[in-house]
Design a binder for these strands. Structure first.
Length: 516
RNA sequence: GAUCCCGUAGCUCAGUUGGCAGAGCAACUGACUUUUAAUCAGUGGGUCACAGGUUCGAAUCCUGUCGGGAUCACCA
């Protein structure tokens, strides 16, 4: 089934045919780029580069550039257009009399459109209106655009005809990126965030590794997995929900610091904080505990803020977050006591349920003590933690892979860092007692049979690894997408993921079985 | 998965009580050799998301479907 082509698409195809008839290849092979736009704008020096009364400049700034035509203003025998390259926009000036006979009228004016990709060669100058521009003496089509681009215009800081259709922008991200420089910038910042973290960890000698995405058992987190099938072995496999158990096997194996930055997959709903595939950093360091890991997280995140913004202060909406060290540290139960006036220490499950109900929460019989504490925290504490804060020492039943607290019964040595009301990382002193780990897995199995689909599976091979001995270890998980949202001021995860999951387009609306 | 809102030209949007489908940008023709939301004159462009229904008559009212957004629930 084919989608009928619009008038404008048909016309562009006719133009392509006309170009070919004129001996012009609409898709040539290469173009020598000597300068990009921002570079030219920054390099231009009126004293040396500006032509005087039609005579060449003392030292002409000659450039060869390439990019996409973003606007076209034709004034008879001369014209201006804006060219967009990877660095931004630059205005180009063309005159009929600079080109071979007929080229300006028949090719430039009639056959080149907004969206076409061209190469230009010429010299930089400043126009009467003061805009640094390139006077093109050579102009070649490098790729014909067969679809019209949406055209946004801007004047006095106001944008006209701005593309607001989120679906259009996510489905055709390539168009979104062409039209919106600020979207490109978000993804450059995200890349800088990841490379900053990677350099930070590499500098400390931690080894970046890759562990299986396809796993016969899934573990390391509480979540529902995606299932797939391997034909040759005829077995079902799961897409990983976390890297944790494999990375800790590597600590058993003698690596003293390993990390992985990669996609995890969780078969759950979509929201502005959730995409089914998302990027996670996990780090494990031998002979360290969670207190040490808090220091490392502070330093790493502070460094990211400085790399992206040049300062530890990050503006997010109408809030300014300060990632300067040190961050506030407060035990979970203390934070709840401060926020609600209730001291939950030592309370049994039913007492906790009573307190939660008195606070207006709905509690059902399937919820254990840990879950109830988590609900209270998530409702009354977490949303109010705007500045980066470490919440420490979680109930043991919420943390089946974390080591018991050295001083406090019923708790584990675990922390989360919260900023802007959202978790940005989760870490603990790793449980390395294989018998305790087995008991925790068995408790998870009990929850699973009681109906908790997200309870962890018992992983015998992981227990076998622990039985060989794992050194004391500190572990960390950071949701990179969430951190990117925080650091780039985005309100939805879809704006920090280039191609977020959407329902597939149906063929009817859709584009495009091609008809020549 | 639940609730609410949205879907009209390539793009942004109007469309009154149910009565001929509209504007700006983009496109096309013409004028204009330093313009910049360029300007001026003219022209074309529609599966009103899709399928039914009510009606003399539906973009408009009703039902269903598809897609998107927001909120909620689960989770990081």
């Amino acid at each position: 089934m084919t989608r009928p082509r619009s008038e404008q698409e048909l016309r562009r195809r006719e133009e392509r045919a006309a170009l070919e008839a004129a001996g012009i290849n609409p898709y040539p092979y290469a173009w020598e780029v000597t300068r990009r736009s921002r570079e030219v704008l920054e390099t231009f020096d009126d004293a040396r580069h500006q032509p005087v009364d039609g005579a060449p400049a003392p030292e002409p700034l000659r450039v060869s550039m390439a990019g996409r035509i973003m606007s076209k203003r034709i004034m008879g025998k001369a014209a201006f257009f804006h060219l967009q390259d990877a660095q931004g926009l630059i205005q180009v000036y063309v005159r009929r009399d600079d080109f071979p006979e007929g080229f300006y009228e028949e090719v430039f004016r009639k056959l080149l459109d907004i969206g076409d990709i061209v190469g230009i060669e010429g010299f930089a100058f400043r126009t009467r209106m003061g805009e640094i521009s390139v006077h093109a003496e050579r102009l070649e089509l490098l790729a014909k655009a067969l679809r019209p681009f949406p055209v946004e215009k801007e004047a006095d800081g106001k944008v006209y005809n701005e593309i607001t259709d989120k679906e259009f922008r996510y489905r055709q991200r390539y168009v979104d990126l062409v039209i919106h420089p600020e979207v490109r910038e978000v993804f450059r910042q995200r890349a800088l965030l990841v490379s900053t973290i990677r350099r930070f960890l590499d500098d400390r000698g931690y080894v970046e590794v890759e562990t299986p995405v396809l796993q016969p058992l899934y573990g390391g987190a509480a979540a529902r997995p995606f299932t797939t099938h391997h034909n040759a072995l005829d077995i079902d496999l799961y897409l990983r929900i976390a890297d944790e158990l494999y990375l800790k096997r590597l600590i058993v194996g003698g690596f003293e610091g390993v990390y992985e930055i990669s996609k995890d997959f969780r078969n759950e709903g979509l929201s502005r904080f959730h995409n089914p595939e998302f990027t996670m950093l996990e780090l494990y360091v031998a002979y360290r505990d969670y207190r040490w890991m808090m220091d490392l997280v502070e330093e790493m995140v502070e460094r990211v803020a400085i790399a992206l913004h040049g300062t530890t202060e990050v503006v997010h909406g109408d809030r300014t977050l300060s990632f300067a060290r040190p961050w506030k540290r407060i035990p979970l139960l203390d934070a709840i006591r401060e926020a609600t006036g209730h001291d939950l220490a030592g309370r049994d499950r039913d007492a906790l349920a009573g307190i939660a109900r008195s606070l207006g929460l709905e509690i059902d019989s399937s919820m254990g003590a840990g879950k109830i504490i988590d609900e209270i925290f998530g409702t009354f504490v977490e949303p109010n933690l705007v500045q980066p804060t470490f919440i420490t020492d979680y109930p043991v039943e919420l943390s089946p892979l974390a080591k018991r607290h050295r001083d406090r019964a019923g708790l584990v040595e675990r922390f989360e860092a919260i900023a802007n009301g959202k978790e940005i990382c989760n870490a603990f002193s790793e449980l390395n007692d294989p018998d305790d780990q087995r008991a925790r897995f068995e408790e998870q199995a009990r929850l699973r049979t009681a109906g908790d689909e997200e309870a962890m599976q018992l992983d015998e091979d992981y227990l076998r690894a622990l039985e060989y001995g794992m050194p004391p270890t500190a572990g960390l998980g950071v949701g990179i997408d969430r951190l990117a949202m925080l650091m780039t001021g985005q309100e939805t995860i879809r704006d920090v993921i280039l191609f977020p999951l959407l329902r597939p387009e149906v063929e009817r609306q859709g584009d495009d079985a091609d008809v020549g």
